[in-house]
Simulated scan of single mutants.
Amino acid sequence: MTTTDGARSADEWRRYLAEYSADVLRVTDDDDLAGISDAHRLLGWLGFDGADAEHLTALEQRLCIPLPPSYRTFLTVSDGWLNLGPFMWIMRTAAEVHWLRDAEPHLWDIFGQYPELLESSLADRVLLVSREGDAQYWLLDSGDISRDGEWAAYIWASWYPGLGERHASFAALVDSERACFEALRGRSA
């Protein structure tokens, strides 16, 4: 596994996600994979068909900003995902991705209760890319963009106040969660 702060090509994402899928399916108890279909198990792929250019362009037009490269390429490989981290069960599709304030207004209200987040206006500029997890949400910060177009990525969870660790990109967040998965589940050779 290669850790990266920046973009991955579609081929790199495919290889990375295929390996990650195989690891998850190999070491995770069936009870913890209840949402995984027989087709996903048979294919050994926890993803879906990728989003086409038309859907990605529509998403960027709706958001009024280009997506960060690592996240955009991820969506071309798989439009959504299952079990991307030990506590993240379903990622949003391109059609479901929205600003936090629009996607989940009740979460935005809770998010806004943290003074440090209000002062930074972070609550107004984060994109919600996750759909279902164990009281955690994956956010991309459109106000913290690197020279290569990557947005800072965070996990916001009920089990710690404020935001979690800042990641340089969506790819770096996925890498971190994969490392967490491997530490919690152990990696079988």
Rank of each mutant, 00 (worst) to 15 (best):
Gly133Trp: 14
Asp175Cys: 14
Ala94Gln: 04
Trp13Tyr: 06
Trp108Glu: 07
Ala171Ile: 05
Glu104Leu: 10
Gly50Asp: 11
Val24Ala: 01
Gly44Cys: 05
Ala22Pro: 01
Asp134Pro: 03
Pro69Trp: 09
Ser120Ile: 12
Arg72Met: 01
Ala18Asp: 14
Gly50Ile: 06
Arg187Lys: 12
Gly143Ile: 01
Gln113Leu: 15
Tyr20His: 05
Ala179Ile: 09
Asp11Trp: 02
Trp89Val: 06
Tyr160Trp: 14
Leu139Met: 00
Pro86Ile: 12
Thr28Ser: 14
Val77Gln: 09
Arg101His: 14
Gly35Phe: 11
Arg72Val: 02
Val24Arg: 11
Ala58Gln: 10
Ser9His: 13
Glu119Tyr: 10
Ser9Glu: 09
Thr28Asn: 01
Phe87Asn: 13
Gly80Cys: 03
Gly133Ser: 11
Ala51Trp: 05
Glu104Trp: 13
Arg92Gln: 14
Ser78Asn: 05
Pro68Gln: 06
Met88Ala: 10
Glu104Tyr: 13
Gly35Leu: 12
Pro66Trp: 08
Gln113Trp: 10
Leu122Arg: 10
Thr93Arg: 15
Ala153Tyr: 04
Asp29Tyr: 04
Gly149Cys: 07
Met91Ser: 11
Leu128Lys: 11
Glu177Phe: 01
Leu139Trp: 01
Tyr160Pro: 02
Ala39Tyr: 00
Pro86Leu: 09
Asn83Glu: 12
Tyr154Gln: 00
Val27Phe: 05
Ile36Pro: 05
Trp156Asp: 01
Ala103Leu: 11
Ser121Val: 00
Ser37His: 07
Leu33Glu: 02
Gly47Trp: 11
Leu140Gln: 09
Leu139Gln: 00
Leu33Asp: 03
Val27Cys: 02
Ala123Phe: 01
Ile36Asn: 03
Leu63Asn: 08
Ala172Thr: 00
Ala10Ser: 07
Thr93Leu: 01
Trp159Cys: 04
Arg185Cys: 06
Glu12Arg: 10
Ala157Phe: 09
Trp108Ala: 15
Ile65Gln: 11
Leu59His: 10
Pro161Glu: 15
Leu25Lys: 02
Arg101Asp: 03
Asp175Glu: 01
Asp5Tyr: 05
Ser142Asn: 04
Arg72Ala: 15
Leu122Lys: 03
Leu63Ser: 05
Ala168Gln: 02
Leu118Val: 15
Leu33Met: 07
Leu100Pro: 04
Gly186His: 02
Leu59Pro: 12
Leu82Arg: 15
Thr73Gln: 08
Gly186Trp: 06
Pro69Leu: 06
Ile65Tyr: 06
Tyr71Lys: 02
Pro68Asn: 03
Leu56His: 08
Arg187Tyr: 04
Leu184His: 08
Asp102Val: 12
Pro68Lys: 00
Leu184Asn: 07
Arg92Val: 01
Ser121Met: 04
Ser70Ala: 10
Ala179Lys: 04
Asp102Ile: 09
Ile65Phe: 07
Ile155Lys: 02
Met1Trp: 12
Tyr154Pro: 05
Leu63Trp: 04
Arg101Tyr: 07
Arg147Ser: 13
Arg131Gln: 14
Asp30Ile: 11
Ser9Tyr: 12
Arg72Lys: 13
Ile155Asp: 08
Tyr114Asp: 11
Ala103Tyr: 08
Arg8Pro: 06
Leu17Lys: 09
Ile155Met: 08
Arg14Asp: 04
Leu42Lys: 14
Glu119Asn: 12
Gly44Trp: 08
Phe74Ile: 07
Phe181Gly: 03
Val97Gln: 07
Trp108Ile: 02
Asp29Glu: 13
Leu173Cys: 07
Gly164Phe: 12
Leu128Trp: 10
Asp134Met: 14
Arg62His: 04
Val77Trp: 13
His55Val: 04
